[in-house]
Design a protein around this nucleic acid. Structure first.
Lengths: 242, 242
DNA sequence: ACTGATATGTTCGATACCGAACATAAGCAT
DNA sequence: ATGCTTATGTTCGGTATCGAACATATCAGT
């Protein structure tokens, strides 16, 4: 059985008005996003923007000593490469595929031109950017105040929201990298969640058995971000802006 | 002696092309910003945008249990109320005056109209927003990996960059609130800096004696943010965008 | 000078996380 | 089956920060 791929799997593309979508459609290029692929390096040029459909991509800051932390997650609800239309051309963050899958890409020039029409595409992208800002801000607060276990719950739920099933492929080592904590810390937190029957994992495969249970344990950060995404980007296209 | 106030003290306003500045100038209203004033509450309506000149404003996230953390600082280099033009109308953050002073405000409607012209003002605001995003992201990473002392250095330098002299009015209690740590933690870190002759403080007044010394101790986060601001917002107006 | 309020200093034990080392176990290639 | 690699589990001592309680010091008002 082969999987159907369509740009409409990405919520931003799906939310475009017909005219705008028509302009871009033929330029959208399906790309495979294997685990670990870096779509952008810190400070590098952005030649394309990416609209994930089944993949999940993490925005990571890597520090001089190698320590890292995830500042946001982008999946089928979003776009990678906002610095392009924000005017900076580049950012100090890396974008790394965290969960393999597919997405569509578009040449930088085309997206910029579309953005510069200052129409619905621009407004949609700016709203998405604001939602992303909320996610970053909440991550900062969460890093400050919440335990590894709560952050793991948040991370699992954010990932789950961007995937079709209830399973994700991810080693504890990689999760630790995302959260910016030690692998052992993740092992301990995940072990606790497993003992309590919320998840089940083995060698890089995590199955969520009790999603409501996770939602009970997660810190408020998850819900704040989710609510803000829903508020700013109701899944149906809504052209009543301004 | 009376202090001169002019919108040009704010770098964004100062960077506007003459035509745009002329349109807005008569609508700019000088406002006093006393310590602790909340320009915006979480989720509240934004009736004005603010351009600080001598004041510094913190963007804070306050959590359900009262714990808080600063996610960004805005002074004479920036603007408060970006959610207005990003399309969200509101944000989950609070904006609180951290260092008293003055600024100019502009009615929300006027800024939106100006933004919607999709000209240089829009491009400038978007670039500023990207710089702000960098600051938030770096704050998230810093919260994760760096000691209170390093973060205090970062905070002092960020504040200093937005003030005329080498002195700031700020109790350790308030700094602790910003950094999202205990007051005692700030006392200890500040005590160390004082013993080493980098700063001198008493009851809410901090004088920086050795700025290079602070720059030696601060984590890389400070420089990353500063470099990105300089890159995105060179102080002279540069209309060569796109 | 007195008083109260506020800012800062100091201590204590508790806890979460770190850093390192090592043990087990599951998958993979041959 | 054998061995190699990778993922996960466990332990240990060290450190930073926390939470709370209390001590001191400076300022403002009377």
């Amino acid at each position: 059985m082969s999987i159907q791929h369509t740009p409409h799997q990405n919520h931003l593309l799906d939310a475009l008005p017909a005219a705008e979508f028509a302009r871009l459609q033929s330029h959208l290029e399906l790309v495979k996003m294997p685990l670990g692929l870096a779509l952008y390096e810190s400070g590098g040029q952005l030649h394309h923007v990416y609209f994930p459909t089944t993949a999940i991509v993490s925005l990571l800051y890597v520090m001089a000593d190698g320590a890292s932390a995830e500042i946001a997650v982008v999946g089928n609800e979003g776009i990678l490469g906002i610095a392009l239309f924000m005017g900076g051309e580049t950012t100090p963050s890396r974008a790394v595929v965290q969960s393999e899958g597919y997405g569509y890409r578009l040449k930088a020039r085309l997206l910029k031109d579309e953005f510069n029409r200052a129409g619905p595409v621009m407004r949609l992208l700016l709203r998405y950017t604001q939602a992303l800002i909320t996610q970053m801000a909440q991550t900062a607060v969460c890093n400050r105040h919440h335990s590894v276990e709560k952050q793991l719950c948040r991370w699992l739920l954010l990932s789950l929201d961007r995937l079709p099933g209830n399973e994700l492929s991810m080693t504890q080592e990689l999760i630790a990298n995302m959260l910016g904590v030690r692998r052992e810390g993740v092992t301990e937190a995940a072990g606790k969640l497993q003992r309590d029957g919320l998840i089940e994992y083995s060698r890089g495969h995590i199955m969520v058995l009790d999603r409501p249970g996770l939602e009970m344990r997660v810190c408020e950060c998850y819900q704040v971000v989710k609510t803000e995404f829903d508020r700013l980007l109701p899944s149906l296209h809504n052209s009543v802006i301004d």
